[in-house]
């Protein structure tokens, strides 16, 4: 363990020198204000048109019920809306506003929406070239000629990556809160959020529903996002080992992720898609109680699929990295 620490230190410093993390922070600094502004407009519009949130929510329910009557709406959407309507009804019945405009609520919905594509994308930004860049620049030879075992070198890179995944998620949380708080205020930590909706087909079973304070919800949500981000990081890591060029490695991972987010929208017609890792990334849906992309998926299933992909990727990465010849 003692000899791995200096390696991790070395990798971390390299990562910081590459300024990749800085780029991520800059992206967040640009994007979050844009979303905050959009959200502010929505809140403003609701304030103008409706007397209080109860009416807004009821209108949302009625509007969705109306679209259920239309034959033009695809069945999967109907199913999704039916489930959401029942959840909103639950909030309304218990006189709890699910989307009070405040800083913490903004963070919650931002994280929810970015967990399938945006955060994985940022994780990729640091993970995709962690090995391949050493090859592109030729420094891999320097690294491997040292009297250190190859798997230790790869492990140090993996540990560094883990550090940065944690940092990226936390930074997103913090920046989101600080920026959105300017507009919506910094309150909302104690606001109750309902979780535990059980979905059977199109019916929502409310018997296990319980309120959690929003801060706890955020922590749990963050944890679930962390898990899927780690899986993305490990897969990107593997590709970075397998592919020589950084560009190729980024494009491969990006294609997989975007295919995933497209598939989640239309996967119901292809049930086997549930074995793909990218369809399983949005673990937060299980917490929020929204319907999974494909019927029959649940948390255990998704965690298993993700773990299998990650373990396989780790195996391949270490196997290839320790055995392959480094040619130039």
């Amino acid at each position: 363990m003692n000899s791995i620490l200096p390696l991790v230190q070395n990798e971390t410093i390299k990562m910081i020198k590459k300024k990749r993390f800085l780029v991520i922070v800059l992206i967040l600094l640009v994007l979050i204000p844009i979303f905050t502004y959009a959200q502010m407009k929505v809140a403003q519009n609701n304030r103008e048109k409706f007397k209080d949130w109860r009416h807004t929510l009821q209108q949302q329910i009625t509007d969705n019920e109306n679209s259920l009557a239309s034959d033009r709406v695809p069945d999967e959407w109907k199913k999704y809306r039916k489930i959401m309507v029942q959840q909103w009804q639950y909030y309304l019945d218990h006189d709890v506003d699910p989307s009070t405009p405040n800083g913490v609520t903004f963070v919650r919905s931002f994280m929810e929406n970015s967990s399938s594509l945006f955060i994985p994308l940022m994780v990729m930004a640091v993970a995709s070239d962690i090995v391949s860049s050493e090859r592109t620049s030729g420094t891999i030879k320097m690294l491997l000629t040292r009297p250190v075992r190859r798997w230790r070198i790869l492990l140090s890179k993996l540990l560094t990556l883990t550090l940065f995944v944690g940092l990226i998620i936390l930074t997103t949380f913090v920046l989101c809160y600080l920026i959105a708080g300017l507009v919506f205020g910094y309150g909302g930590w104690d606001q109750p959020i309902f979780t535990g909706f059980q979905i059977n087909g199109v019916e929502v079973d409310n018997s296990a529903v319980h309120p959690v304070p929003q801060w706890l919800y955020l922590v749990m949500q963050g944890g679930l996002i962390w898990f899927s981000s780690m899986v993305v990081a490990i897969l990107a890591f593997m590709i970075s080992v397998l592919v020589r060029s950084t560009a190729a490695s980024i494009v491969t991972m990006m294609a997989a992720l975007i295919a995933g987010s497209l598939l989640t929208n239309m996967a119901s017609s292809w049930p086997s898609a549930k074995f793909l890792f990218m369809v399983n990334l949005q673990l937060t849906t299980y917490l929020a109680g929204s319907p999974p992309p494909i019927e029959g998926m649940n948390l255990i299933f998704s965690l298993m699929i993700l773990s299998i992909w990650a373990l396989a990727a780790l195996f391949v990465s270490f196997r290839v990295f320790t055995k392959q010849d480094i040619l130039n």
Binding site: G166, G196, M220
Partner: peptide, 18 residues
Amino acid sequence: LLVVGFGYGVNDILNPQG
């Protein structure tokens, strides 16, 4: 922090206390 959150989250989803 995130690992702890993950534990809590999984537990909350699997054993919801209605």
